[in-house]
């Protein structure tokens, strides 16, 4: 169960996910989180892969993506530890059934999987404020096996490893870095495109 686990996300993994959502402002997007258990109670999210921006409810592209991603990161000692979702509408804070289903699937293999939902309100306020917490809501599976929002007063359960990540993120947003993000959809349309985004932060 994800009852008491803590989650720590690395800056690059975090930024990739948010930039992906910003690149496709008018559609729902998703991504997977890669990481490992460190210690008893902490899940370390080391990397992320942006998945899709069109028709995220279809199974075939998702199956191919999950197999490929798993194969790639297995060699690096990382596995799929969670799922990221951004809704189509700005003011929609519901976790859709698609997100829950994909989360369910991931938690079969990694029981303390995290489900992250983009918090548009926090993202919008970012350039004005000094908030250091991630602009995402954390959902975990409770004892009854359903996804529960971890209350905002417990926001310490999801933290970013580098404290200045939001400052870097705002920088990337203003320099339109999101234009350079490649997701798995782009890769399937043109297989020469790199869903690892290995050049992004160089």
């Amino acid at each position: 169960m994800g009852g008491d686990s803590k989650y720590e996300i690395h800056q690059n993994a975090y930024i990739k996910l948010v930039l992906h959502a910003l690149k496709h402002k008018t559609s729902a997007v998703n991504g997977v989180l890669l990481g490992r258990l460190s210690g008893d109670e902490t899940v370390e999210i080391v990397d992320s892969v942006p998945l899709f921006h069109s028709q995220i409810g279809l199974l075939p592209p998702l199956e191919i993506a999950l197999i490929m991603i798993e194969e790639y990161f297995n060699d690096k000692g990382l596995s799929i530890v969670g799922y990221f979702h951004a809704n189509e509408r700005f003011d929609d804070f519901e976790l859709s059934n698609i997100a829950k289903n994909i989360g369910d699937h991931i938690s079969k293999y990694f029981p303390v999987a995290a489900l992250l939902l983009l918090d548009n309100k926090k993202l919008e306020a970012l350039p004005k404020g000094k908030d250091r917490s991630p602009v995402m809501q954390l959902y975990t599976k409770d004892a009854s096996r359903s996804w529960k929002l971890v209350e905002s007063d417990g926001s310490y359960r999801l933290t970013i490893k580098e404290p200045s990540a939001n400052v870097v993120l705002v920088d990337h947003i203003s320099s339109e870095k999101w234009k350079d993000i490649t997701d798995f959809d782009d890769h399937l349309d043109d297989i020469s495109k790199d869903w690892l985004n290995s050049e992004l932060f160089n």
Binding site: I64, I67, M68, E71, Y72, I191, S192, D194
Partner: peptide, 21 residues
């Protein structure tokens, strides 16, 4: 063939993926 031509660095990854299928 496509991966070999257009994305050789991910060719081995494709082979592994196809093995699963």
């Amino acid at each position: 063939k496509g991966y070999k031509q257009r994305n050789p660095s991910k060719h081995s990854l494709l082979t592994a993926t196809l093995k699963c299928l």
